[in-house]
């Protein structure tokens, strides 16, 4: 590639960085390439846009976190992925209550639920669903995933531009994967509305443990009125981002 050499080299470096990102499979959501300057989490990604057409990995540290992680993924699909396609949710059993999906911005009838007990079949179903261009996003609850399996999934999405979300249980030592990012989402006590009794809007602690070409971080996020709020800056003093694998 020929480039005009001008006095300012930082321009060239920026352009080259953009090229590398494109070659690495980073593309912005369809028709949604405007950087979300206002959104702190998106700032962590290259180009300040949540990458679609890649696979993301979410780790669960307790049974309570499944609902939080699932809800966070649903909000990502509704607010950051500009997709009209069906959403395929794959798991060993039906944990989700479909009617609870709606407050997170996606009509539940757009979801297709696939129940597969066999782990090998589950990965095959995930790969086939990711290969289908008519699918907007795939959420898959796996028990374990080897590096090879994650590589296969990443290759599948590069063709079809579908976005994949892999939910897996947390372990002390997680193997490296080919996913673009690794997240952990957990619950925080809700904030009362105007000091009224009862439970307020849900607040989540979103940890971006690892992200390719981006900046890991941790945020407190509140989901209210169909959008993210950032109630207070979390305590990041003792936060150690995981090593990029």
């Amino acid at each position: 590639m020929q480039r005009e050499v001008t006095g300012n080299k930082s321009h060239i470096i920026l352009a080259l960085r953009a090229d590398i990102l494109r070659l690495e499979g980073f593309r912005t959501a369809h028709g949604n390439s405007e950087p979300h300057v206002s959104d702190p989490i998106q700032q962590a990604f290259p180009g300040a846009v949540f990458p679609s057409g890649v696979t993301h990995e979410f780790v669960l540290s307790s049974i309570e976190n499944f609902s939080t992680t699932g809800a966070f993924i649903t909000t990502i699909i509704s607010s950051w992925l500009n997709t009209q396609g069906a959403i395929v949710w794959i798991g060993a059993e039906q944990k989700l209550l479909p009617s609870a999906l709606e407050p997170f911005g996606v009509p539940p009838d757009r979801f297709l639920f696939v129940r597969v007990a066999n782990e090998k079949d589950l990965l095959w179903v995930t790969e086939e669903a990711l290969k289908c261009p008519a699918v907007g996003a795939v959420v898959s609850e796996v028990k374990d995933m080897s590096f090879t399996a994650s590589r296969r999934l990443q290759l599948a999405v590069e063709e079809s531009r579908t976005t994949g979300f892999i939910i897996r249980p947390d372990r002390l030592k997680l193997p490296p994967t080919a996913c673009v990012s690794r997240w952990r989402v957990s619950q925080l006590p809700s904030e009362s509305i105007d000091n009224l009794p009862g439970i307020g809007f849900p607040i989540w602690k979103v940890e971006l443990l690892r992200v390719r070409n981006g900046q890991p971080g941790v945020w407190n996020v509140q989901w209210a009125d169909q959008q993210f709020n950032y109630p207070q800056a979390p305590d990041t003093k003792d936060y150690q981002p995981a090593k990029a694998g």
């Binding site: 396609g85 069906a86 009838d109 757009r110 639920f113 079949d121 086939e128 669903a129």
Partner: peptide, 29 residues
């Protein structure tokens, strides 16, 4: 391309030929 996409129907056929049709569900209220 919503749910009425022919490619989605083909995906379902492919999946149900291996894991069975009962495993794939949509939910309505």
């Amino acid at each position: 391309s919503g749910l009425n996409d022919i490619r989605l129907a083909e995906l379902i056929d492919k999946l149900s030929s291996r894991i069975g049709q009962d495993s794939i569900r949509r939910y309505l209220p």
